[in-house]
Design a protein around this nucleic acid. Structure first.
Length: 594
RNA sequence: GCGCUUGUAGCUUAGUGGAUAGAGCGUUAGCCUCCGGAGCUAAAGGUCGCAGGUUCGAAUCCUGCCAAGCGCACCA
């Protein structure tokens, strides 16, 4: 429709140029937007305003010239000049109603588009270290990433969803050592748990599993465990040196094979827990990418070689540095430490290279706001690898606070006291959890109101939307019982009977879905979709209260049923994209997962 | 100290150069012989953090200041 209007305007400008009223070299950008206020018609353009300067004329005067030159269109009822010089286009009632036929025909593909030009992208989200269960802080990235991936997929991108598993490095060694220490404790040997170890109870659970499988095979005397280990922080020492000493001893005492046994049990246990939690949260992946495979293969070496060949690496103080500051980062970064170990950043560079070697044309990273320092260095790495930095996109999600009884719930991940994602889902349900995380802009701090998420009333937006959906289902069910089956053809032939205020509003809402959908993909903003669904549901509830759908008149009834069904299709589709269900009934005893 | 992000109604917020700044909650006043009242209708409530600047036009772009969050490792 926008295209049609643009053609109308282009024609008018053309004619004005031919008549010599507009200069020949004028090439106006014609841009339409759906109006926010229905008094302003359906679509508006500000082109007369933008032409004011080059033409040196009053915008309203220009608008008048253009309007007079416009040819008639079947779809346009009238064009008005408004405000400082906007052109407001009013579509014909008939044209507005056609959208219903389209929705019914296309079903849940209504709104799909080719915005992404079939670009093959990988979307990475969550990627939390497998050192403990996911907590509510990870929930936002999960909900956001999963919803965004769903939206992009239907907006013309070839999407691959990926989780980067940091199964390598110091943190994993600390994890394995933490498990080992708890294991020793279980065997009855006294230990003092390190400040910097992983404190959570889940560590003890894993230790128990290790003991069940291997008995006391990995038990060593306290004296050996702490041999030559620097003092911990609580004893006036350095907690980092302390834990490194413990890790060193663990590897020495256990030997490669046994150490690996504990390491693998811990990794597998935690990773499978993460997978389970995400599945429960309705968040899915196409690929779980192991960092270790970058080390085992030659990707890191190759990546560093590329940088070396281009002269972007240098040695200083025994370490190898990447000239990140040359590419806009605030300082250079170490890729190989003095002790020969490759840094995490080296893996990042290799992973980036790997993504494009796998044939992706774009890499989208969803990071928590605390990782914003990574943007510059990742973009720098991309430039160093001669990749187009435009193809590397990093979206940050701000933090979410849990709020209960009007107060923020304080969380300390250090101490192991946190609300897990799994607990949250158990508490408020998947639907509310998924929806609440994405109903605000991702770059806005989010207060997650637990009481509201649990409430079953119109205050709760997800219930409000689901209720609208269930209501529509209920109407269809009721009519079926009364042998008044829905007849789509009669409805389509009777759309002209939809002429109440509420029907106009609802139609307007239905018709705006495709543009909202594209906008949510373009700006990487699932919250636009969430807000839209609320508005659509509201329009339906208003309509429902003002008019009866199941009237005796067969024509009116089926026209209204068509409108209702179109609404239901969009509600169900939108809820699904955001990871929530579209129940056919709100009564808990006959739930439908949808 | 330096950097990134964010300041919009009492609260939570939408709005990435356009028209009278939109919603929800909360508050106040109304609506059930009617398909699910888990709903609807309406009212009140705003110096868009502050001060300059760019523009025909600024919540939006630029500069400075104030406030909040986060980040500034040969950690991950």
């Amino acid at each position: 429709m926008i295209k049609h209007l643009q053609e109308l305007l282009e024609k008018a400008v053309d004619d004005l140029q031919r008549k010599g009223i507009f200069p020949k070299d004028l090439e106006p950008q014609i841009f339409f937007e759906r109006t926010r206020n229905k008094d302003h018609g359906d679509f508006a353009t500000n082109m007369a305003l933008t032409l004011a300067k080059p033409l040196g004329k009053n915008p309203r005067e220009i608008a008048k010239l253009i309007v007079d030159e416009l040819i008639e269109s079947l779809h346009v009822a009238k064009v008005e000049i408004a405000g400082p010089g906007f052109l407001n286009f009013f579509l014909t009632e008939n044209c507005r109603r056609q959208i219903i036929k389209q929705v019914l025909k296309l079903g849940d593909t209504f709104g799909d588009n080719d915005f992404g030009n079939d670009k093959k992208i990988t979307v990475e989200y969550v990627s939390a270290n497998p050192t403990g269960p996911l907590h509510v802080g990870h929930g936002r990235g999960a909900a956001y990433g999963a919803s965004l991936a769903n939206i992009l997929e239907k907006c013309g991108y070839q999407v691959q969803r990926e989780y980067y598993v940091n199964d390598n490095g110091r943190q994993m060694d600390i994890l394995a050592s933490s498990v080992w220490l708890r294991y020793i404790e279980l065997c009855g040997e006294p230990i003092v748990f390190p400040d910097n170890g992983y404190q959570g109870d889940y560590i003890v659970d894993i230790a128990r599993k290790v003991r069940k499988k291997f008995g006391d095979k990995f038990l060593f005397k306290s004296l050996e465990v702490y041999e030559a280990v620097p003092a911990d922080e609580k004893d006036g020492g350095d907690k980092e040196l302390h834990i490194d000493g413990l890790v060193f001893n663990a590897k020495q005492l256990l030997g490669n094979e046994n150490y690996e046994n504990i390491f693998q049990i811990a990794l597998k246990d935690i990773l499978s827990g993460i997978k389970k939690d995400l599945e429960k949260f309705n968040v899915n992946y196409d690929s779980w990418f192991s960092e270790k495979q970058l080390h085992d293969g030659d990707t890191i070496d190759r990546a560093l070689e590329i940088l070396q060949d281009k002269g972007y690496l240098y040695k200083k103080d025994g370490a190898t540095w990447f000239m990140a500051s040359h590419f806009g980062d605030e300082k250079d970064r170490v890729v190989i430490r003095e002790n020969g170990q490759k840094t995490y950043f080296a893996s990042d560079i290799a992973y980036l290279l790997n993504k494009f070697e796998r044939g992706f044309e774009g890499a989208l990273y969803v990071f928590g706001a605390d990782h914003h320092g990574y943007i510059a260095r990742l973009k720098a790495a991309a430039k160093g690898l001669n990749l187009n930095p435009e193809d590397i996109e990093i979206v940050l999600t701000q933090f979410a606070n849990l709020v209960q009884d009007g107060k923020k719930i304080q969380m300390g991940t250090r101490s192991g006291q946190f609300v897990t994602l799994s607990q949250l889902v158990d508490d408020v349900g998947v639907d509310a959890a998924r929806f609440f995380y994405v109903m605000r802009s991702h770059d806005q701090h989010l207060d997650f109101d637990l009481d509201l998420a649990k409430s079953q009333s119109s205050d709760n937006p997800v219930f409000y939307i689901q209720y609208a959906h269930a209501r529509i289902c209920s109407i269809f069910q009721k009519l079926e019982q009364q042998a008044m089956q829905h007849n789509k053809e009669i409805g389509n032939a009777s759309l002209h009977l939809l002429n109440t205020d509420q029907e106009h509003d609802l139609l307007r809402s239905v018709a705006s879905y495709p543009e909202i959908f594209v906008a949510s993909a373009r700006t990487r903003s699932p919250h636009l979709l969430a807000n839209y669904l609320r508005e659509l549901a509201q329009n339906y509830h208003s309509y429902y209260n003002a008019h009866q759908v199941g009237v005796d008149d067969e024509n009116v009834r089926n026209a209204r049923l068509n409108l209702s069904k179109a609404t239901r299709i969009i509600l169900a589709n939108g809820l699904k994209l955001l990871g929530a269900s579209a129940p056919t009934s709100m009564f808990s005893d006959d739930q439908d997962g949808g």
